[in-house]
Design a binder for these strands. Structure first.
Length: 605
RNA sequence: GCCGAUGUGGCUCAGUGGUAGAGCACUCGAUUCGUAAUCGAGCGGUCGCGGGUUCAAAUCCCGCCAUCGGCUCCA
């Protein structure tokens, strides 16, 4: 399982200073939770109009949500922090008090805290209060530290203010959430801040710009990435790799259009259930209207339906790198991880009910082997994304859902895969097995996904002819190992910190001519390398060697080769790799062989 | 979509009412150089867009757009 990238990387310091998540330390649970109350007390002292709501610990700190008419500013945060230090230094005791529901209600009403009253209504007995000194208390189950002396006044900081809806519901009032971080020692706080700065340097938005992989243009529109030559090399290397893996496993490539009739999406149910995520319809009426596709399945289904299928043809595996468009809410867009136009490594498998389990396992096996090849084999968490039985956003019968969900459960249990359940995370037409990764700043993203679907075959009336000549309904598996190329590349950039393994690097080798007189020789070597399929180039800047090396290092080019008089005379190259530094002079032939082998085996030079 | 912050040359940033600055990049010149920045000169910005206040706006006000941090949403 992936530990947070925020605290993951620098091995040298990681041993010296451990930065525990709250969930792994009881002490930190108490400390961070107490901090949120101290903050609430400070806020109410400074801003008497502020009403308290909830304030839990989070993995590296805490937050508290307030209802307050004016927005809190940076300045306010400083004042609140100061007030918190005062409270901490007073060494106030935290005293637990158990009260009756009526008593709790009486006291909350006296304080005129409507949110607390709502919370109380949902609480089980016994009702407990925590007093922080003489004149402030909060409805809370605890536990906390004994007194604020246990909090270090120099081991916390207030980080940001954000809007947050009461009870996480966008129909409710919007509150102001203040985020803070807190640690046992000031050294931990310093280290935490340092590692966050480091993590920001790995942000794919920053590295993507620095390495020239992709851009966004205001003139094109938000959430619509444009891929530069280097970024496109990266994309197509990934595509080619997966295509090869899929061919090995009996997938058949197909190509389908970017738009389709509204009717198609009415049949699939997307028009009814997914409308607000579609770009607006083209055309004057729904009968004649077209929409940009937000998913590929209805198109692949048409290919399935184009002829009468025999059980002998199944499983039929139709694969497409399909570009889809989804009108994501403006506030949701960000870098490559959430965009409005992206390419799914999609495939739809049409199988008999008997084939379902086996085929599902094969898909999971493919996904695992793909992640292993990308060195992401243990960077994900597997989520069983099931429906929320109380929600009405799903289509299909209870029976179909039961069958699908249990098929997924059987598969992960069979594989002994680490997993957790996400109730309410299902697609509207079926449950999913999702592969979740975290980015440099510890945010979670779904990449790969496998979905079992009894619904769309039903809606589209899919059939095959069984052994006994009867017409039967196939089951569909939707699956995308990468999820989307955009999001995958975003995550990859951050996982590698821009240092792609040789086989993925947009530029694999850069030749550095010592003087202009060596350019011709360098160009000749590059031509040879290119013939062999190696992505090589010559540094034509005319800069001094030190500068050229610096630029190549900053550009994270995995292999550099210096060519000067010595190399020219002996038909050799002085190789320097990013990973190992100078390797000395090697014959050109040897370099060619070694680099070819390294790329083919996904190894390093 | 909601709350808040931000938006100055290709990039990173300084400039808070009086005619726009630095470093890097780029171009040119000199240097012909051996493993993380050679020296010098030059080019380049209607300060996100639109409106307003003012004798005067990058700077103050309003609207919009985009980005960032969250929330909500997410096939």
């Amino acid at each position: 399982m992936s530990q947070s990238n925020v605290v993951a990387p620098p091995a040298e310091t990681a041993e010296k200073i451990h930065l525990p998540r709250t969930s792994e330390s009881d002490t930190l649970k108490r400390i961070r939770h107490t901090f949120s109350h101290v903050m609430a007390m400070a806020v109410q002292k400074l801003f008497p109009k502020a009403q308290v709501t909830i304030g839990p610990w989070i993995e590296y700190g805490f937050y508290y949500d307030f209802d307050h008419p004016e927005p809190f500013t940076e300045k306010d945060l400083k004042a609140i922090k100061k007030e918190m230090i005062k409270i901490i230094n007073k060494g106030l005791p935290l005293e637990r008090e158990e009260v009756s529901r009526e008593e709790a209600q009486r006291r909350i009403e006296k304080l005129q805290e409507p949110y607390k009253l709502e919370i109380l209504a949902g609480l089980q007995d016994p009702i407990t209060l925590y007093h922080l000194g003489e004149d402030w208390w909060d409805l809370c189950a605890g536990p906390h530290v004994e007194t604020t002396k246990a909090l270090h006044p120099k081991a916390f900081d207030l980080e940001s203010v954000a809007g947050a809806y009461w009870r996480g519901d966008a129909n409710n009032a919007q509150l102001q959430r203040i985020y803070g971080t807190a640690w046992e020692t000031p050294e931990q706080l310093t280290e935490y801040k340092r590692r966050r700065e480091e993590a920001k340097k790995r942000d794919h938005r920053r590295l993507g710009k620095e390495l020239g992989l992709f851009i966004f243009a205001d003139e094109v529109g938000p959430g619509l990435p444009l891929w530069t030559p280097k970024g496109t090399l990266l994309r197509s290397t990934l595509e080619d790799f997966l295509k090869q893996e899929q061919v090995k496993r009996g997938y058949q490539p197909v190509v389908t259009p970017h738009i389709g009739r509204v009717d198609l999406f009415k049949t699939s149910g997307h028009w009814q259930k997914y409308r607000e995520d579609l770009f607006p319809m083209m055309g004057d009426s729904e009968d004649e209207g077209f929409v940009l596709k937000a998913m590929n399945c209805p198109f692949h289904i048409q290919i399935y339906k184009s002829s009468l299928r025999s059980y002998r043809e199944l499983p039929l595996r139709l694969a497409e790198f399909g570009t889809v468009y989804r009108y994501e809410q403006s506030g949701e867009l960000g870098g490559l991880t959430r965009v409005r136009g992206f390419t799914q490594d999609d495939a739809h498998l049409f199988v008999t009910p008997e084939q379902l389990d086996d085929e599902f396992l094969k898909v999971v096996d493919l996904i695992q082997s793909v992640f292993n090849a990308l060195q992401l084999g243990d960077a994900f968490r597997a989520r069983l994304s099931f429906r929320d039985p109380d929600s009405d956003k799903y289509i299909g019968s209870d029976d179909a859902w039961e069958k699908s969900q249990s098929a997924i459960r059987r598969a992960v249990e069979h594989l002994g895969m680490n997993h957790f359940e996400g109730i309410g995370e299902a697609a509207f037409y079926g449950p999913k097995l999702d592969f979740i990764f975290t980015d440099a700043l510890d945010r979670e993203w779904q990449l790969g996904t496998v979905q079992v679907d009894y619904n769309l075959p039903e809606r589209f009336g899919l059939e095959y002819v069984a052994e006994d000549g009867s017409r039967q309904r196939p089951v569909m598996i939707h699956r995308a190992p990468f999820g989307s190329l955009e999001r995958l590349i975003g995550i990859l950039i951050e996982e590698y910190a821009g240092d792609f393994p040789l086989w993925l690097a947009p530029t694999q080798v850069r030749l550095l001519p010592v003087t202009e007189s060596h350019v011709a020789y360098a160009q000749q070597v590059v031509d040879q390398l290119r013939l062999q399929g190696v992505r090589a180039e010559v540094d034509l800047s005319g800069d001094r060697m030190g500068k050229m090396i610096r630029n190549s290092e900053k550009g994270k080019i995995p292999v550099m080769a210096v060519v000067g008089d010595k190399e020219l005379e002996s038909n050799s190259l002085s190789v320097r790799t990013r990973a190992q530094g100078e390797l000395g002079a090697l014959p050109v032939d040897e370099v060619m062989t070694r680099i070819g082998d390294a790329i083919a085996s996904h190894g390093s030079f």
